[in-house]
Simulated assay, not measured.
Amino acid sequence: MRIAFLGPVGTYGEQAAQAFAQLEQWETPELLPQTGIRAVIQALAAGRVDAAVVPVENSVEGGVTASLDALWEHPELEISRAVVLPIRHALVGSGSVDGVSEVLSHPQALAQCSLWLSNNLPNALQLPTSSTAEAARMVAGSHFRAAIASQQAAKDHGLKELAYPINDVAGNCTRFLLLRQGERNWHGELASLAFSLQANQPGALLKALACFAHRGLNMSRIESRPSKREMGEYIFFVDLELPDGPESLHQAMEELRPLCEHLAVFGAYPMTQL
């Protein structure tokens, strides 16, 4: 099995990929780091890997927009499993906390540690990177730069742990998706889909959501993203709980489809709390 994830080594995405491999009982998988979330999904869409792992939602900062946008661009992909990974950030570097004038990390990690940074490094310049592990790689050997990354990333890049944990919310966690090519699975505790509406008019979204409500399908998440075609036009991403099997989901999709300009069903899947 070849699994693409957001690299380099030491990211939370790599931890999630290892967890998926254990859950799927894949022996000796080949983990292939990619530069950027879009590159992870494109590697799967192009057939260069067998599976892809991407973050989709953080309990503090909400949806990961790069993943949502890339999923919408590749409706042929299916979600086969999800894991919820606890996130425990560390400040890592080669110098000391007192000498840090620049902090590098993924924008989500910087946001998740904003209060700690404000209280402990208020004058440090915050610089975004493509991943937390990439930030760790970039600060290696510097005495004025530090990174927000995992403890594993510190070990992988030979850095000292300057402070831990530094995330503002103790229960910080991220949901990762395992993406595959192939037939949709309709059995699972959650189902994910995305749709755009035929018309932007009063009650259009309410009518679409009623397809779920009167069948007792609870939405555990709804999020909108701009269509990027014109102002005021949106794509809606929805997660549905499926306590009673797939039949109600099939019925809801049949009712919803005529209301939509585009409808992408990414399938149903199990979710594991790590």
Rank of each mutant, 00 (worst) to 15 (best):
A136T: 00
W116D: 07
I166G: 09
L178Y: 05
Q151L: 14
A147N: 09
A146N: 04
V139D: 01
T129L: 09
I79T: 07
L179C: 02
N123F: 07
V103Y: 02
R88S: 08
V64A: 05
N120G: 00
G158R: 06
P75L: 00
N167Y: 07
A146V: 01
D98W: 09
A111Q: 09
I79A: 10
S114V: 10
S114L: 15
Q152T: 05
L127M: 09
V84Y: 07
S105E: 01
E134L: 14
A170S: 12
V103G: 14
W186T: 04
G158E: 02
A70V: 00
A133G: 15
G95H: 05
P165L: 12
P75T: 02
A146P: 04
I166F: 02
L85T: 11
E134C: 14
I79W: 08
V103S: 12
Q181F: 04
Q112G: 06
L71S: 01
G99L: 11
G141N: 11
S94H: 11
A163Y: 01
A82F: 06
L115Q: 12
V84M: 08
S142C: 11
F144K: 12
N167S: 11
S114I: 01
N185M: 11
W186R: 11
L159S: 00
A135T: 04
E183L: 11
Q181V: 09
S101W: 08
W72C: 13
L179A: 15
S150I: 12
L117V: 02
E161A: 09
R137E: 10
H89N: 04
S67T: 07
S96P: 05
A146M: 05
S67A: 14
T132I: 08
L162V: 12
Q108K: 02
L177N: 08
E102T: 14
S94M: 09
P122V: 07
V83T: 12
E61K: 07
P122I: 05
D168N: 10
V84E: 13
W116E: 09
S80V: 03
R81F: 05
Q126A: 08
M138S: 14
V83Y: 04
N123W: 06
L159E: 02
A154I: 00
L177D: 10
H74K: 04
S105W: 00
T65W: 01
S142M: 04
V92D: 03
N123P: 04
P128L: 10
Q152L: 08
V92S: 12
E78R: 03
L121P: 08
G182E: 13
S130A: 09
A170R: 11
E189R: 15
T132D: 15
S59Y: 11
A149I: 01
S131T: 01
T132W: 06
V103T: 05
E76L: 11
G141Q: 12
A133R: 13
K160S: 05
L177T: 03
V60D: 13
R81D: 10
A154K: 00
R180I: 02
Y164L: 15
A82S: 13
L68N: 07
Q151P: 08
G188L: 15
P165V: 10
D168I: 15
R180H: 14
A109M: 04
A140W: 06
N172H: 14
